[in-house]
Design a protein around this nucleic acid. Structure first.
Lengths: 132, 132
DNA sequence: ACTTGACCTGGAGTGCACTCCAGCTCCTAC
DNA sequence: GTAGGAGCTGGAGTGCACTCCAGGTCAAGT
């Protein structure tokens, strides 16, 4: 199965421009071309794009994704380094989740506060909410 | 208690430049000045900065933080809208956490895969890892 | 008096990750 | 055979959130 750039964009959730951009900067190998010179993405290409979008979603900077891509291209000898990159990245993602969860608590507190103010103490709002 | 800009930066985790930048774009009210014209941050200023950094950490864009800041400045009449902003933002943060957690699973899978390959099947690496 | 260091201002510059554009080439359908 | 639509290239432009800089002021120490 092969896919036009529009189909690849639809399936990966990236824009057509972004697909070409990723190719230009070496994040993805240039896909095959059809007889008219158009890109023909394979299932494997899409699989790699899917993984890349996971890395992006989790905030990996493009230069690191590129390092990973180049290691992958290099083959078996680079698996240790690739694993290391993923392990370090995973640690970062876990930290990020913890950070977000701690911020959630603050949001909860704030929201509860607003609700209390609106329901019971409309005249005390200036004092109890504006302070923070 | 008041704080120099350097102290405010240290306590908020923002840079001095960022503090001045936030003031310029209306995210924070201009703090008091000392006799020499230097910024003198109050505890209340620092409290607001602390909350702002929570919003930033959770990915709220600056233009929305500014809207929130302006509502806050407007006083009691804006609490409903402020609460609404926080509630919507909280929903976004929760989604983001869920998204990260789903990506974590993919990372776990990949890492496990690499570990298996490195320990048991060094010669099969090309087949089992390169595919994705 | 003079050096030092923190702070001031307005404005320019940076890095990231796209996103858009002009002008072109194909293929398909009428 | 021609009009339309998808895709192509190289390069320029965008939005965001800072970050840096030049040239100046001010207060304290020596």
């Amino acid at each position: 199965m092969t896919y036009s750039i529009a189909q690849a964009a639809a399936r990966s959730g990236l824009s057509i421009d972004t697909l070409r951009y990723y190719e230009r900067i070496g994040l993805v190998e240039p896909p095959a071309r059809d007889s008219g010179g158009r890109r023909d993405y394979s299932d494997e290409d899409l699989g790699w794009l899917a993984f890349l979008t996971r890395l992006r979603t989790t905030g990996m900077p493009i230069r690191m994704m590129r390092e990973y891509a180049q290691l992958r291209h290099r083959g078996v000898g680079s698996t240790a380094r690739r694993r290391q990159i993923l392990v370090e990245h995973r640690a970062g993602v876990r930290e990020r989740i913890a950070e977000l969860q701690s911020c959630l608590e603050v949001l909860d507190y704030k929201i509860t506060n607003y609700e209390l103010v609106e329901r019971n103490l409309p005249l005390a709002a200036e004092l109890s909410v504006e302070a923070s």
